[in-house]
Design a protein around this nucleic acid. Sequence first.
DNA 1: ATTACAGCGGTAAAGGGCGG
DNA 2: CCGCCCTTTACCGCTGTAAT
Length: 407
Amino acid sequence: MPSVEKIIEDEISSPSVFKEKHKLYPEYTPSSLPHREKQLKQLAQLFKSFFSSPGEEMQRVMLVGSFGTGKTVTSKLFGASASSLASRNGIRLKYVHVNCYKSRTLPQIIYNISLDLGITLPQRGLSAQELMRGLIEELERRNTYAIVALDEFDYFALMSSGLNSIYVLVRAYDEYVNKKKRLHFIFISRSISTLENIDPSSSTYFLKNIVEFSPYTYSELYDILKERADEALYPGVISDDELKYISMIEGYDKGGSGSARTALEILVRAGESADSEKRSSITLDDIRKAHVIVKPELAMLQDQVSALDRHELVLYLSVIKALKGSGSGFVRIGDVEKIYRVLCEAYNLQPRRHTQVYTHILELRSMGFIQTKSSGKGFRGKSTLIGISAAPLYVLESKVEELLKRE
DNA sequence: ATTACAGCGGTAAAGGGCGG
DNA sequence: CCGCCCTTTACCGCTGTAAT
């Protein structure tokens, strides 16, 4: 029986197929972006007037495309290049990326923008308009411009008062008519239809400058995977045929989701599978195994789940457990709350009371984690029934528990 | 110090729909 | 049609910050 230390040591020092694993993670921003030249060009064109006459007008651009089509990464890369280009021209331009899942209210968003810009605004006590005024004046004082990307924008727009709030952002300069327009916006959204549904009249306001991101095809995915695999894996770990196989699985023209995110995750899991069996290369079986685990819907949830705080995670876990226990497709909100109380104890949390539980449930719903419907016959009184359609419960459960353990 | 005001979370009353 | 029971919401108190 080897010592614990020995076991851990062996595991850590065992060889890996990964040279730089992090380069396969969704949050990694690669230096080049295959098959997104058109979108970058469009973005550049829309911001052209900024470079010729900064501050003259406020730019508003909307990036639209389904999950894993490179919206976020394109935006970040554009922002980075734009600001370095600007600084070469003697303009101070900063790029700020805000995730609307994490910053759910307007004041939070403004606060986070200013935080990223190195501006300290109070978190409390000030209204959104006042925060906005503070931000604008500070930009003015520093002679700085900013491109603000609002990621997962459809979620923000869906929230009650979301659309009204947007005007606070976008019309902020109405009261500074002769000041330079220092704030510019990139809205990132999964689809335009959600925005159109909310408020058709004001949607035209956002839908003027649209850059579309189409799902990746088989050959496009191959190019992306090839490039990333070269950076992240040791040479010879994976063959072209195997990369093509993954591309085939996910390629939009081959009936896949067209998501680079999912394709990359399959690559990561396949690599992990090879590692765990101490093989120095990835086999087709590794990929098949990985494919079973990595479902597009799950990969989509992955980054959203990480935006949840502990209480929301525990509550989500409660929903999962309640559903597992009931065996039926739906459970009542009250049952979920009971389980939530128990789970809080297990995770050493002071349980939130009913109001908070309720609002968190609403939030989980608007983020798409759960679905709700009103109870019909067979229930006494009115009750909200909660269901999860995203993925198999046991997979979700292990994923959420893993996240909770990470503290 | 005092006022004013926003977020957060809780309490309790109001609302809503079905069984009896 | 009543009463029940869970959901939903109105409102309150507490805390933290800026302006006065």
